[in-house]
Amino acid sequence: MELHRETEDDAWEVEALLDTCFAPGRTALSSYRLREGVPPARDLCLVARGSAGEVAGVIRFWPVRVGEHQAMLLGPIAIHPTRQGEGLGAFLLQSGLDRAAVAGVDRVLLVGDEPYYGRFGFTRLHGVTMPPPTNPDRVLGVWDWDGVTGDVTRGA
């Protein structure tokens, strides 16, 4: 497995994998409204390629604001169906978080299941509101969220 930073040249393969994993309707999700017109944080986004050069998995980060605070929105993370169950998702998630920590990112949030993401340190964020119809119980964060509340809006 080869892991590298996502580049513009990877974009079409990444989008094809996301369509495979989530279907083209994925862009209707509320989190996509936070991504529209905002480029991903390419220094944090990773692509895992198999031995034949195929895209096996991806993780992306997007700049957002929560109230007056900067944060990174993690997602999507996708693993090709033929590579699921190999631990690649956990590897990409930890690698992405490690990269964000080195880059000085103070806080990361995502929408997901706490039982899964809790093993990476994510906990429920109270007072942080994603665009509707996001279930507030699925809004999770890691690192410095003390005193951070408000609506999640597009970053720059």
Rank of each mutant, 00 (worst) to 15 (best):
R65Y: 01
E68K: 04
Q70I: 01
Q70F: 08
Q70W: 10
Q70V: 03
A71V: 07
A71G: 05
A71T: 05
A71S: 10
M72T: 02
L73Y: 01
L74G: 02
G75Y: 08
A78N: 09
I79T: 13
H80P: 04
H80T: 03
P81L: 09
P81T: 11
P81F: 08
P81A: 05
P81I: 10
T82C: 07
T82G: 07
R83C: 13
R83H: 15
R83F: 14
Q84Y: 01
Q84D: 06
G85Q: 09
G85M: 06
G85I: 07
E86S: 15
G87E: 06
L88T: 10
L88V: 05
G89K: 03
G89F: 07
G89P: 04
A90H: 08
A90V: 07
F91Y: 10
L92E: 04
L92W: 00
L92H: 00
L92D: 03
L93E: 00
L93F: 00
Q94D: 07
Q94F: 00
G96R: 02
L97A: 01
L97D: 00
D98M: 01
D98L: 01
D98E: 12
R99D: 06
R99G: 03
R99Q: 11
A100N: 05
A100I: 06
A101Q: 14
A101V: 09
V102T: 13
A103R: 11
G104E: 09
V105G: 10
V105A: 05
V105M: 08
D106P: 14
R107Y: 15
V108Q: 03
V108M: 07
V108A: 04
L109N: 00
L110G: 02
L110I: 13
L110P: 12
L110D: 06
L110S: 05
L110C: 08
V111G: 07
V111T: 14
V111N: 02
V111M: 11
G112Q: 08
G112H: 09
D113C: 11
D113N: 15
E114V: 13
E114R: 15
E114I: 11
P115V: 01
Y116W: 12
Y117I: 09
Y117D: 12
G118R: 13
G118K: 12
G118F: 13
G118Q: 11
R119Y: 07
F120A: 02
F120I: 00
G121P: 09
G121A: 06
T123F: 08
T123A: 11
R124Q: 12
L125V: 06
L125A: 12
L125N: 01
L125C: 06
L125H: 00
G127A: 02
G127N: 05
T129S: 12
T129R: 14
M130A: 11
M130V: 10
M130W: 14
P131R: 13
P131N: 13
P132S: 12
P132H: 04
P133C: 07
T134C: 15
T134R: 14
T134Y: 12
N135W: 05
N135Q: 10
P136S: 07
P136G: 04
P136K: 02
D137K: 11
V139Q: 02
V139E: 12
L140F: 11
L140D: 04
L140A: 01
V142H: 04
V142A: 14
D144E: 15
D144H: 15
W145K: 00
W145V: 00
D146R: 15
D146I: 12
